[in-house]
């Protein structure tokens, strides 16, 4: 019976959806950023697989079909970007300069910290895409020879942390302009952070979500330089 269930290609697929639904329920009930549905789902599935002694590749036999959808879904990020193109045009200089400085700050801080902690090249490139959307980050990590699973985990933790600290950081460092808040959140904490920007206001939300895409694209080019530094 166990074999019948765990060997079915549907098993990994269904348990992923179920775990995510449970995550959504918990998030709805507690409304705290730390209860991120994705974080909960990953945690639950790992516990489940360990408890029932199911190997990752058995799980992934079904779950991989979800991963296949990631490239087409990422391409569709162009749709909201297209719809917000006016926002981008209106504040083009500030947004582009702001995001580029953010990408530069991200890569440089990771480089410096990687040297301090004696990370090897693979660990370093695994971390480089940590502030961008998972969709593009997975591709970047793969292309650079990073450990993709760690990249994903780090990206999600970054997003959750960014979501939690966004208001405090903006307040402490006197980031008041809604456009600047949007750029700060979108380029540091991607989609999970943007959920917080949506609570702040319409401009913050629009700028934050377009920053995700722009930061992702700039990062793709920046990493090809930074990857050579260590």
């Amino acid at each position: 019976m166990d074999n019948l269930i765990f060997h079915s290609a549907l098993f990994g697929f269904i348990i992923s959806i179920a775990a995510y639904e449970i995550g959504m329920l918990i998030k709805k009930k507690f409304k705290l950023a730390i209860f991120n549905p994705l974080l909960i789902a990953i945690f639950l599935i790992i516990l489940f697989l360990l408890f029932f002694n199911v190997r990752y590749d058995e799980y992934n036999r079904g779950a991989k079909y979800l991963s296949y959808l990631l490239t087409p879904a990422t391409i569709c990020l162009a749709i909201p970007l297209y719809e917000q193109l006016d926002y981008l045009k209106k504040n083009a200089k500030a947004i582009i300069v702001g995001i580029s400085s953010g990408v530069f700050a991200s890569m440089t801080s990771i480089l410096v910290l990687s040297v301090i902690f004696h990370f090897n090249h693979q660990e370093y490139v695994t971390l480089l895409p940590k502030s961008i959307t998972t969709a593009i980050g997975i591709g970047v990590s793969e292309e650079l020879g990073g450990i993709v699973t760690i990249t994903v985990a780090v990206i999600i933790i970054t997003g959750v942390l960014g979501n939690i600290i966004a208001e405090k950081v903006c307040h402490t460092f006197k980031i008041i302009e809604p456009v600047a808040k949007g750029v700060a959140i979108g380029s540091s904490a991607h989609a999970i952070g943007t959920a917080k920007a949506m609570e702040m206001g319409k401009v913050e939300a629009a700028i934050s979500s377009l920053s995700i895409v722009v930061a992702g694209i700039i990062t793709v080019f920046a990493v090809s330089i930074y990857a050579n530094f260590m």
Binding site: S16, A19, I42, L49, L50, L69, L70, A73, L77, T149
Partner: peptide, 19 residues
């Protein structure tokens, strides 16, 4: 596709089990 995107990250992250 965009709404269901978070689901698509799960399999890669669960790979933490192996790494």
């Amino acid at each position: 596709l965009l709404e269901t995107m978070p689901l698509m990250f799960i399999p890669a992250a669960v790979g933490l089990l192996n790494s």
